[in-house]
Amino acid sequence: MTQQIIVNSRTIDILAVLMLITTIILIGTSRLRTCIWAYACRSFMLTLASGLIAYFSGIHHIYITTGISLALKVIVIPGFLFYIVKKINIKKEVESYINYTLSLILACGIILIAYYSTQNIIQFENTFMRHCLPIALSITLLGFFVMISRKQAITHILGLITMEDGMFFAALSTSYGMPLIVELGLFFDILVSVIIMGIYVYRIKESFDTIDTDSLRELRE
């Protein structure tokens, strides 16, 4: 039994690390399409983890979330993003305020902070949390970092859904997911927010002729 638990948690851990790597790819790459692919990839792994946890724990409603997650995060949202990219015809590479080397170093720092801050909590834990919680937090913070460092509006969306992935994973790994109603609400929110943001990316492109958020600096003191 104990053996089983260790194997289970190791499996999840490995998936977690993989997810972290895809997030780092998000930081390290300069091609928008790659970014979206990385996102889809991570979402898939997340869904996988979700399914595994449902299987391990035997809690049925996680299957439902897994299903929705698969549909939404792996198929709909990346699809929608690809659609936008195509529609507004982005050719430029993703520009960043910070160069890649420094970005990676900062990413390392962020991961350290995530470990540091959760260290008090995880030392008492015996479930998947040991690594999953810090990694989930890292993914969240890295998503945040992406939003800060990348200039294009669409990367804001990517960063945001990355953050949400992190959260989702955190919930999953610590507490086998949130109550179903919350999860449903969460998915709904993500979907709606991505759509709204997509619409605004389109509108911004129309009005400003660019989706570079650097140009959004009219409202200032």
Binding site: Y97, L141, F144, F145, M147, I148, S149, K151, H156, T213, D214, L216, R217, E218, L219, R220, E221
Partner: peptide, 13 residues
């Protein structure tokens, strides 16, 4: 209040 959303995000971060 520079107007740059990135700076604003940085404040939160």
């Amino acid at each position: 209040h520079t107007g740059s959303i990135h700076i604003y995000l940085t404040y939160i971060f």
